[in-house]
């Protein structure tokens, strides 16, 4: 009995680490430009497809090759995100209407989903992990669950270091505080925002690649990942990577519990109820800060 819960816990934390990584990749773009990239879920699925493509091209890779392929996948997705970022930021520089990103990022999400549907049809792709299952508590846990946890910690450390110790990272953080002052201080705002898009691509590309064996790689699976990533983002507090790292696993465990206990069709409902509950009780999230009155 307790083993069942232990498995739910480990798988939940593993899947939740994926949500935490999605939330972190949301954060970096949100901090630099205020944009919440709806297409992030599709980028994640694309990362998973790269893992499938790697197997299709080279056969089941050895550990060393697999390790080398992670940065390759990350960079490919980063390039895709750079292009998307460039196009998304384009209308913001000549229009008064600063909300076009709502539509353009959703549209990109639809376009990628449509292309995936055209290329590989409605079925999900399966990727086999190169690692054997790990024995834990007398059960066998697929290794990618554990790898995802490691990856979340890795990117968390890198992001914290980058945003608080490097000049570029500090400049990006400054944009979140006050973009106008940042521009006045001579920051190359557009370039920093593009960099953030690229960085979010590195995060999400590597996540998709590493987690490929445990996720649904299909043309229509992206929205669910975006939604769960967003729930993690809200619970953790927008712009807080620490919050994301903690909230992601919470969401993952809750989703696993819902799937095991009341059935998969209610998983979406559970995510929604968590989201609504958090927003009603503490809209700024656990690690977020409240905004002052604007009078």
């Amino acid at each position: 009995m307790w083993q069942e819960y232990a498995i739910i816990l480990i798988r939940g934390i593993g899947l939740g680490s994926v949500y935490a990584l999605i939330a972190m990749s949301f954060n970096i773009v949100k901090v630099s430009s205020g944009i919440l990239n709806f297409a992030q879920g599709n980028m994640f699925v694309l990362g998973g497809m790269l893992a499938y493509a790697a197997v299709a091209l080279f056969g089941q890779p050895s550990f060393i090759v697999w390790l080398l392929l992670i940065p390759v996948a990350a960079i490919i997705i980063a390039v895709v995100l750079l292009i998307q970022g460039y196009l998304t930021l384009l209308p913001l520089s000549y229009s008064d209407d600063q909300q076009s990103w709502l539509i353009t990022t959703m549209a990109v999400s639809i376009i990628i989903g449509a292309v995936l549907l055209l290329v590989q049809g409605p079925n999900a792709l399966m990727v086999r992990s190169i690692f054997p299952n790990v024995p834990l508590f007398g059960m066998r846990v697929p290794a990618p669950f554990l790898l995802a946890i490691g990856l979340a910690v890795f990117w968390y450390v890198v992001l914290q270091w980058f945003l608080s110790k490097t000049l570029t990272g500090l400049a990006i953080s400054a944009l979140w505080q006050d973009p106008v002052a940042g521009r006045a201080a001579g920051l190359k705002v557009r370039r920093l925002q593009l960099l953030a898009f690229g960085l979010s691509g590195l995060i999400i590309g590597s996540t998709g690649f590493v987690a490929a064996p445990i996720i649904t790689i299909a043309s229509d699976s992206a929205v669910a990942y975006v939604l769960n990533g967003f729930v993690a983002l809200v619970i953790g507090g927008v712009a807080s990577n620490t919050g994301a790292l903690i909230a992601g696993p919470l969401v993952g465990v809750a989703a696993m519990l819902a799937t095991f206990k009341i059935g998969g069709e209610f998983q979406g409902l559970v995510s929604m109820l968590i989201l609504v509950g958090i927003l009603l009780i503490r809209p700024e999230g656990i690690f977020g800060s409240t905004a002052a009155r604007r009078v």
């Binding site: 196009l87 539509i103 353009t104 959703m106 549209a107 990109v108 999400s109 639809i110 376009i111 989903g113 449509a114 292309v115 549907l117 055209l118």
Partner: peptide
């Protein structure tokens, strides 16, 4: 869906 997304974009 592709036409739809492209038009909006």
């Amino acid at each position: 869906p592709l036409v739809y997304g492209l038009v909006a974009f």
